[in-house]
Design a binder for these strands. Structure first.
Length: 641
DNA sequence: GCAAGGTC
């Protein structure tokens, strides 16, 4: 029997269908589906089926010496027992093995992991590797006609990442958890991707903390000529209120149109969805990244949309986009479909062209009644975006008017939508028309009123989930599949609250300690260095062992710095944790009011100077307590929910 | 109970 291994079940099923003349026979082995035909069996994995971990002896955090942990043995243990068992069963019978996992570094490693499982029961089995970018009959047949060798160097590169992430992550996670006393399910964590991400959020918040708002004034005149419109003084922001008031005082009751400039503004249609662009768009219509991914996964598994994890922003030539557009002719999207098909189909393209998977696009038309509200929202977003990438530009007519009022220049800008183009298909956040009345140069207008409006400069805004995912991509940390999970992780560690993300005092303390004593782990450069090392491993220039050892040496240095300052770090972490519990000042004794726990485990708001002060307020029994920046009117306390 | 990376 010739055993073929793919990275996921779906790929196994489709590849079997392509390679087999007849319909392949489905067989269930230990709960895992495999597809048989002509002496071949195709079986899908579920990504990594094993993981790296330390031996059990190191499980106790309090009793493990962290310096020792740096050099502890790293083992591979199964995470998907049923798939590993099925793999052994089929592997034993196999006379030949072909690895057909995804064509990237992790895919190579996943393949080698499967090979290692099989080698234990069938040491002599010959194995080769096929590489393909999309699952189309032509490409799959071509790949299987000329199989190549497994790239063990590339897999070793991937393994070095696993080992380094585990060791750094475990040692630093345990260190901050132990020194802050946060053990059990409340542990604090540190990692190559999560910590630089958290550092971005904390550093942004620090900019907000030190931001001093500057007051400024803007001068507006309402002008009438049958129609009515508002014009702003050309200076824009006045930092000096007196200056603006003096101008206001000298303004007469009429103004003259000095100039009218007509123009055009075109907006290009958006690029195809890769995971990052998709999550950004979902985020902008109010669906969190984790939720959007969960729903996209559901829509993919049920055949409504294509694979949702992709970096690609260019439709491959093999994708029959016209056919997909036509499939919507008998649906509620028929008007869009019809209009697109009546013209030439030239999709937009993004900068990233990869071979992993096509951009996210609809696979089959769905009916609104088949899906839940949020599922439909995401589905509709994918459909509309897909259409929009084939549509024309949105065209606006613009008008810039300058009006002279008593020697002072005022300006107003108008915009009118003349051709909706892609915005007709993709009707999210469409800017409104700002229509100015008909005007001609030299026309005299009545000044109806003049307003001087006081404002303040605003601090830089907090990052929303969609924006943060984009920043992570730009910095080269995380992957399309993990970035949203990393963000979820920050929430579950109570490092951040809300969306846009607001860091807690605990997050400040962790990032401050790491930046001071373990700066490496807070910077995206750790990832870029690792990427370079991995490239060299895959090119055969250096070994996995060398890279891992070098990394261990670095960690040893970092750790000794941390260890030397253990007391300081412990104190500042505990401080941060305490500050996150403060929700206001006690009315009775002006000490801190904090969230406390009774001996029975129920929580309440109590005074920090108990037993001297016995002020107490109840808290709901269930639900997560999130400290926000809003204050309650009754007690001046910070609201939570 | 640790990370990040696959996938469901």
């Amino acid at each position: 029997m010739h055993l073929i291994i793919t990275e996921k079940h779906d790929a196994a099923k489709r590849i079997a269908a392509i390679l087999s003349e007849k319909k392949p026979a489905k067989e269930r082995i230990n709960g895992v589906d495999a597809y048989k035909f002509d002496g071949k069996t195709v079986m899908g994995l579920s990504g990594h089926i094993v993981e790296v971990d330390f031996p059990k002896d190191y499980n106790n955090w309090q009793k493990t010496d962290l310096k020792e942990l740096i050099h502890a043995e790293v083992q591979t243990t199964p995470t998907h027992a049923n798939i590993v068992t099925a793999l052994r069963k089929l592997g034993k019978e196999a006379e030949y093995l072909t690895i057909a996992t995804d064509y990237d570094r992790e895919g190579e490693l996943i393949g080698v992991e499967a090979l290692n499982v099989i080698k234990k029961v069938n040491p002599e089995v010959p194995a080769d590797r096929v590489r393909y970018s999309t699952i189309t009959p032509a490409e799959i047949k071509k790949a299987f006609a000329s199989p190549a060798n497994i790239d063990f160097n590339l897999a070793a590169a991937g393994e070095s990442r696993q080992v380094i992430d585990l060791i750094w992550g475990a040692v630093l996670t345990r260190f901050v958890s132990l020194s802050s006393g946060r053990l059990g399910d409340k542990f604090l964590s540190v990692g190559r991707v999560q910590s630089p991400t958290l550092a971005i959020i904390v550093n942004r918040e620090k900019e907000r903390d030190v931001f001093v708002p500057v007051p400024y004034w803007e001068l507006f005149a309402t002008l009438v000529n049958g129609g009515e419109f508002e014009a702003q003084h050309k200076k824009g922001r006045f930092l000096d209120k007196n200056e603006a008031e003096q101008i206001k005082a000298k303004l007469g009751s009429t103004g003259t149109v000095k100039s009218i400039v007509l123009g055009k503004r075109n907006e290009k249609p958006p690029i195809p969805f890769n995971t990052t662009e998709f999550l950004r768009a979902a985020s902008s219509i109010g669906i969190s990244a984790a939720n959007a991914m969960r729903i996209a996964e559901f829509l993919y598994v049920n055949g409504y949309i294509s694979y949702p994890r992709t970096d690609n922003t260019v439709y491959p030539a093999t994708l029959d986009t016209k056919d997909i557009i036509a499939s919507f002719l008998n649906t509620e999207f028929h008007a869009y479909s019809q209009k697109l098909l009546s013209g030439k189909l030239e999709p937009t393209r993004g900068k990233k062209e990869t071979t992993d998977h096509p951009p996210i696009h609809p696979a089959t038309p769905a009916k609104r009644s088949q899906l839940k509200d949020d599922e439909w929202k995401i589905y509709e977003l994918v459909v509309r975006r897909f259409f929009a990438t084939f549509a024309g530009e949105t065209q606006w007519e613009t008008m810039a008017v300058t009006v002279d009022i008593s020697g002072e220049e005022f300006g107003a800008n108008g915009a009118r939508l003349v051709e909706p183009g892609w915005r007709w298909y993709y009707s999210y956040n469409v800017p409104e028309d700002r229509i100015l009345p008909q005007l001609r140069e030299g026309q005299v207008l009545t000044v109806k009123e003049v307003n001087l409006i006081g404002k303040e400069t605003q601090p830089p805004s907090r990052y929303g989930q969609g924006h943060l995912i984009k920043i992570m991509e730009d910095m080269g940390i995380g992957t399309k599949s993990t970035r949203h999970e990393i963000i979820s992780k920050l929430y579950s560690r109570a490092y951040v609250v809300g969306n846009p993300l607001q860091p807690t005092k605990t997050a400040y303390a962790v990032i401050e300690a790491l930046e001071k004593y373990a700066n490496t782990i807070t910077k995206p450069e750790m990832t870029s260095k690792l990427e370079q090392d991995m490239d060299e491993i895959s090119e055969g220039k250096i070994t996995e062992e060398y890279v891992v050892n070098e990394s261990k040496d670095m960690l040893e240095e970092v750790f000794s710095d941390l260890f030397k300052n253990k007391e300081l770090i412990s104190e500042s972490l505990k401080n941060g944790l305490y500050e996150d519990r403060i929700i206001g000042t006690c009315k009775k004794c002006s000490s801190d009011l904090i969230i406390r726990k009774s001996r029975k485990g129920s929580r309440f708001i109590g005074c920090s100077s108990y037993p001297k002060c016995d002020f107490i307020l109840p808290l709901p029994k269930s639900g997560q307590i999130v400290i926000t920046d809003k204050q309650c009117e009754d007690h001046g306390l910070i609201l939570s929910k």
